[in-house]
Write a protein that binds this DNA or RNA. Structure first.
Lengths: 325, 325
DNA sequence: TTGAAAGCGCTAACAG
DNA sequence: CTGTTAGCGCTTTCAA
């Protein structure tokens, strides 16, 4: 039961391997209809399946894209991965998935593995965008960064500043007074932009006096820990830098016997499915995940690569946690 | 800046391609220490990176595993994917990820793609295990089914029946009277086992009179819809067949103004991270995700394949939703 | 211990 | 329109 090859098909069809190749690929040379039919029949009969490995070796493309996320178990990245896989499939590509665990070494090791596999391109959320970019450039591999990126590199991001401004203004509009914030890690560019937006909104509204802010990782536990710090000062409203953190905040509020939104109003950032399913549902800044994924795949598969620095718009999805209705 | 090949390294080291191969792979022939050092230096100098594609073509193995899940955005599958990737990485394998969207056609198409890519093996949650098994057997590709599997096929599952029994008994133990259930799809084997466990527990406890059951998909919306049906009859306790459904049930309870666990007690199945983060936290039957992933990868990479039909133990994780303090 | 050479399965010139 | 053939980069006999 050895592998059926093109030669087997050629033999069965009484023709040459080249013709079989032409038929399978619809080119580059034309094939007489009769011959084509015979080849097709032979393919059926033999159960021939083209060998992608051999194809990649000669042709160049592996029709495979790599995706590196910090943690696939994080709902936001899981949705993103789903969207990327979906877009890749539509473009006839397959995706290699890997978790960097937010670790630079791991990330670089993963990239190395991907390069050995000769992937056509990679989508990545990188901890070390400059190093990663250099490695990929050297290997001549296409890439698109989501979030942090080195200068000149193709990247897709969202308007973190604007989103944070919108969420904060909305919260202030409810008349809760000062809005506290549970932000992301201190060195993170994305986190920083969200913080800046929050601060800008408060400042321009003249509500920036005596506000509280804490740095926390983008996790449920981070949100919980941040909440514990902040709640001591009894804020009436909190903006969190990610949905995961908001989930943690919700839990902390429950543990403290605080009712959301009656005692504490919340707005957050991401718009993952979890934000809709939380109780109460979370008012959040929605990231256009599908659009990001499609753009990324397009960028990596487009025949002639054009650098791209996209900053996508975000929208505020108003739900229950902020106190509306 | 063409690709650096083994021939380039050989030239730089003043030796033959064969020797470079021996050094890179540590065999199959020994190499004199001096030569080895020269080759290593040449590799550094040239920036050589072995070509996995060529390697796979000649050698056989692609060092790649496939993973097919119905929906990566589902928290449970996302955690599973993370665990599989982790285990695969430890075994020096990379994983190709794909969503079948719970659709048989899509699943088979994905398998076809994987087969073309010559993956070494595949882990799958299958809608059509018999057909899938036949296809893979024909291609001589190793596989392990998670959940539903055809007879004789390697599979890894959990004690769905026992877990459901434990959860139900626990709920009954609180003295809530009849325990209703939001089950999975009607034709699903896993769902059926959980239902059977629930029913068995109630029957043996003599509490099976007049109980309510509804079929629903394993989704948040399914849980919500099921809740709407069930809540009309004011059950005091509900067992759901999955965490996702429980999240939906929680939301429905909130919408109805029901307090959990005071007005309604809940126990569920899966033990995804979401169950811990929900408010109130969910009492749930914990699936050993990491263990399942490790077993699966082991099964696919073990030098000599032994059929495996594993049914792993599950544990009840008691949290707030059932009414325990 | 090292090297030459035969493929792995396929694509794409290049001839016919 | 069809067939022959030269590689793609690597591993591994088989000889030296």
């Amino acid at each position: 039961m050895a592998r059926v090859t093109q030669a087997d098909v050629a033999r069965a069809a009484g023709t040459s391997m080249a013709v079989v190749s032409y038929v399978v690929n619809g080119g580059p040379r034309p094939v007489a209809e009769g011959t084509r039919l015979r080849v097709l029949a032979a393919i059926q009969e033999t159960g021939y399946r083209p060998d992608g490995v051999a194809r990649a070796l000669v042709g160049g493309s592996t029709m495979t894209l790599g995706l590196i996320v910090p943690d696939i178990a994080n709902e936001f990245f899981a949705e993103l991965a789903g969207a990327v896989e979906h877009a890749a499939r539509a473009a006839k590509r397959t995706v290699l998935l890997a978790n960097s665990e937010g670790d630079a070494e791991t990330e670089l090791g993963l990239l190395e593995t991907f390069l050995q596999r000769r992937i056509d391109g990679v989508v990545l959320i990188s901890k070390v965008p400059v190093t990663a970019a250099r490695l990929l450039e050297l290997a001549g591999t296409r890439r698109v960064f989501l979030g942090a990126a080195a200068a000149g590199e193709s990247s897709i991001g969202v308007d973190n500043f604007g989103g944070a401004v919108a969420a904060t203004i909305h919260l202030v509009g409810h008349g809760y007074g000062p809005v506290a914030m549970i932000g992301g890690p201190a060195q993170d560019g994305v986190a920083e932009a969200r913080r800046a937006g929050w601060l800008h909104a408060l400042t321009s509204l003249g509500a920036a006096d005596d506000v509280d802010f804490v740095h926390q990782p983008f996790t449920v536990d981070g949100g919980y820990a941040g909440a514990l710090e902040l709640l001591a000062r009894r804020p009436r409203a909190i903006f969190t830098a990610s949905d995961r953190q908001a989930i943690g905040l919700l839990r902390a509020a429950a543990d403290k016997g605080l009712s959301v939104p009656d005692d504490l109003a919340i707005a957050t950032f991401d718009g993952s499915a979890a934000s809709a399913y939380a109780v109460p549902s979370l008012t959040t800044v929605q990231q256009p995940i599908a659009q990001m994924a499609e753009l990324a795949v397009q960028q990596l598969t487009h025949p002639d690569p054009q650098p791209l620095q996209a900053v996508l718009d975000v929208g505020l999805v108003v739900r229950r946690s902020c106190g509306c209705s």
